[in-house]
Simulated assay, not measured.
Amino acid sequence: MLNALEVITTVLVGLMVGVEFSVAFVMNPIFNALPDDSYLLARAHGGRMLGAVMPFWYIGSLVLAAVWAVAGWHHHGTGLVVTAAALLIVSVIMSVLLLVPINNQSKTWTPDNRPADWREQGNRWDRFHYARVAVIVAAFTLLVAAL
């Protein structure tokens, strides 16, 4: 049973890392190359779509890592899993405090109602997102090492 939990947790976190890495280094650069109105609409749509899914994915990943840490407390690699869970906590805190407030605003923007500093807010979200990607990549790496 512990083996299944380890695999499910690692795959779920790995998929999350892949999606977030893709957003940071594939999708957003593509969106940035679009004309302003198209860029804005693409980012708003992405914010709505991923903003609906990611809270469950982040919290679910954290819960699974915590369960793994508890269930495997006396097994090899538990310290790595605990550290990974701590990093996932950091990623959730970063999301709630830094990224979600910007996303909640930007997902409602249209070419007609965007604020004057919409590009700067998007760039700020990107910088926070790069940091969050680094945190979840580190968490994923620790989970893989704990296997």
Rank of each mutant, 00 (worst) to 15 (best):
V100Y: 11
N32A: 15
T10M: 11
A84E: 04
I93L: 14
S106P: 01
V13G: 05
L64E: 01
V70C: 09
L5D: 02
I102T: 10
P115M: 06
H129Q: 07
I59G: 11
V82D: 10
V63P: 12
M49E: 06
L64V: 00
L80P: 04
Y39P: 00
S95C: 08
H75P: 03
R114K: 14
T110Q: 05
Q105F: 05
A66K: 11
A65Q: 07
A139C: 04
R119E: 05
A84C: 04
A131P: 00
V70D: 00
S91A: 14
G47R: 00
D112I: 04
A71N: 07
H129N: 07
E6I: 04
S106H: 13
P101H: 09
F56L: 13
N123I: 01
L88C: 10
N3H: 03
P35L: 15
V90T: 13
D112Q: 14
I8T: 00
D117K: 14
V100T: 08
N32E: 14
R43L: 11
P111H: 10
N123F: 12
L98F: 14
M16Q: 15
T10L: 09
V7D: 00
S38C: 09
W68C: 02
A52I: 08
G18D: 06
E20P: 11
V26M: 05
V100E: 02
N32R: 11
L41A: 15
P55H: 14
L2Y: 05
R43M: 14
